[in-house]
Amino acid sequence: MTHKPTTPHSILFVVPRFHTNIFVATKALVKSGYKVSVFAVSSRAEEDHSIVQPVVFGERPSLRKLRRAMKQADPDLVFLRTSRPLSYLVAHMCSFGRRKLIHYNQRPLHFPRKWYEIWEWWLQGLSAERVTPRLGNDLSQPADRYATYLPWPVEAVEGITRVPRHDGPLRVICVGKLMQPRKSQDKLIEAMEDALQSGHATLTLVGSTGTATGAAQAHYNKLHDLAKRSNGAIRILENIPYSEMPQLYARHDLCVLPSRNEPLGTSPIEAMAYGTAPLVTTGCGSACYITHRKDGFVVEQRSVPALKAMMDELIASPELVAQAGRNAAETAKGELGPQTFVKRVETLLDR
């Protein structure tokens, strides 16, 4: 078990918003005795602030408010994600060794930066050190010497009981913004068309919405049109609070993210904690968390035939899905678990 620090370290996350992918990370650190603060540019209704209440600064941060918040947080370590102008101001307050700062981005570990990118940080009095939750697809490439692999953890909420499938249809869930065409929910529906029509599978689309025009609005309209014509095989759930997602994951067998060019894609990884098998494309950054056919499945991005072939196999092989789900839950407890994450952060603190 991870020890609680005698003198609690203070850790600050500076982010565009308190995304669900860092909720378990902040919770794990708090449970291990750390003081955790989050500075964000904006906030959304579906966020969970039950553990850490973010300080929201808006698009034009008040310097007085920021100085006061920094004094109160008094961080020993700052994880800084680009969220200008907030991130620029915090970086300036940490420059030239005043506070330990580590950049956070989703650029793969195996994707070295150009020399001038590193020098740009050094000239500002900032460390070139960064963390990333992505290994990258091409591990033959050299790793960034200043980068550390730090996957965000997942954890099952206590009291959530998995609902077994029995002999019914394969229950598929897809979580992603409903107005973002690159999430490719329409391609998943195309790949599942026969199974949905025959009753061998059901599909739940979960995602946030907002104001959109053009291609984004057209994508949203298309999904609703396909759902209406599915005779109930497809249902759409909009703007579901993060706190309600565990129940949804536990009621499904497979969590699919068919995205193209997805920087990370955490919903299938969150689902793993509940014994729900993940299926992602090679275009998802989170593909590096999955061992194909062991604790999940990975298919080529932009290929409906490849996705359909995988879906057809899984629909016909319930035990393959069930075993992958059991293995996924073990991966979530171990390599992707909260205690593993805290140990990795402690290593960063000790440098």
Rank of each mutant, 00 (worst) to 15 (best):
G285Y: 04
Q124D: 04
Y146L: 15
L264P: 00
Q217V: 11
H92C: 01
E319M: 11
E190D: 12
L12H: 11
E158N: 08
Y220D: 10
G58Y: 09
K65I: 07
T209P: 13
A324I: 04
L63S: 14
S10L: 07
M192Q: 03
A216Y: 12
E238K: 03
F79M: 01
V321W: 07
P54A: 14
S32I: 01
K222W: 12
A215I: 14
I173Y: 05
S140K: 06
H224W: 15
E262F: 01
A309F: 05
N231M: 02
E244F: 00
Q217G: 06
F23M: 09
Y149H: 15
E129P: 00
G210M: 12
L86W: 01
Q180T: 14
S37N: 09
P133I: 09
A233Q: 13
H292Y: 04
P318A: 12
F111G: 01
V172G: 10
S95L: 00
G296C: 01
L77I: 07
L178Q: 08
A250E: 04
I118D: 10
F111N: 11
A25N: 07
H92K: 14
L188G: 06
E120K: 14
A218E: 15
N21E: 05
H49D: 15
G125T: 11
Q180M: 08
S42E: 15
A324H: 04
M70D: 04
K4M: 09
T20R: 05
E244Y: 02
G334R: 09
A212D: 15
A332Y: 11
G125V: 10
V280D: 15
R44T: 10
E129C: 09
L205R: 03
K177I: 02
K187A: 14
L264A: 09
M179A: 10
V14W: 07
L257Y: 07
S198N: 13
V41P: 04
T291F: 02
A216P: 00
P153V: 09
G325W: 08
L205C: 10
